[in-house]
Each structure stands twice: as structure tokens, then as C-alpha cells.
Simulated scan of single mutants.
Amino acid sequence: MFELFHRSRTRNQYEGTGIGLAICKKLLSNHGGFISAQSDPGVGYVSNIFLPYQL
């Protein structure tokens, strides 16, 4: 899901290029963070973004 240009569905089912989450992952990784995702079919999708907190 977080790989560049990876499509889990066909273009007929969902629009998009498949690059959005890959860019998010790269940005977060460059800043010491990460992204995770959870999905329940028919219920919805949740993505969690974690960035380190520095004082």
C-alpha cells in the first residue's frame, strides 16, 4: 500500500495514481516518523501518522 505506484484496486474501481501514500511515507521517514493503516471492509479506513516529538 505504501510502495510507489502500487495499486491495490483497478483504475475502474478507484481514481488516483497510487503515489500519494508513498510520498507521505517518504516524508515521514525523512523526519523520523512512520505511517500505518487499518481497514475494515464495509466500515472504513484509518491511517495513523507518527512524528517524533522533540523538546
Rank of each mutant, 00 (worst) to 15 (best):
S36D: 11
I49T: 12
L55Y: 02
H31K: 14
G32E: 04
A37L: 11
I35Y: 11
E15K: 15
T10C: 08
G32H: 02
Q38R: 05
L51N: 02
T17E: 03
P41Y: 08
F2V: 05
R11D: 04
G42S: 09
E3I: 06
I49Y: 15
H6C: 08
R9K: 10
H6F: 13
L28A: 05
S8C: 03
G42I: 03
L55F: 03
R7P: 01
L28P: 05
E15A: 15
E15L: 12
E3F: 05
S36E: 15
S47A: 12
G16Q: 06
A37K: 02
S8I: 04
G16K: 11
Y14I: 04
S8F: 10
Y14G: 01
I35P: 07
S36I: 09
P52K: 08
G32T: 06
F50V: 15
G18S: 11
S29K: 15
G32K: 03
S29V: 01
L21E: 13
E3D: 13
Y45V: 06
G44D: 02
I35N: 07
L28S: 05
I23A: 10
T10K: 00
F50T: 14
Y14T: 12
Q38C: 05
Y14V: 06
Q54S: 08
R9Q: 07
A37I: 06
N48S: 12
G18P: 05
M1Q: 03
L55P: 12
H6R: 14
Y45K: 03
L21I: 03
T10V: 00
N30D: 15
G33P: 02
G42C: 05
Y14P: 01
K25I: 06
I19H: 04
R7V: 04
A22S: 15
F34N: 10
Q38G: 11
G16R: 09
S47L: 08
R11N: 02
I23R: 13
F34E: 10
F5H: 06
Y14H: 05
Q13N: 09
E3T: 10
A37D: 02
T10Q: 04
S29P: 00
T10P: 00
Q38A: 13
N12I: 03
S29W: 09
S8E: 13
R11M: 07
Y14F: 13
H6E: 15
T10G: 13
Y45A: 00
S36M: 08
G18F: 05
T10Y: 05
G32C: 04
N30V: 00
M1Y: 00
L21R: 14
V46W: 02
L4W: 12
G16D: 01
S36Y: 04
Q54N: 08
C24Q: 14
P52G: 01
I49F: 15
N48P: 00
E3H: 12
G32R: 07
I35G: 06
L27P: 04
S47Y: 06
F2W: 04
D40N: 14
Q13V: 12
A37W: 08
G44R: 05
T17V: 11
T17I: 08
C24V: 11
S36L: 10
G32M: 11
I49S: 00
T10R: 08
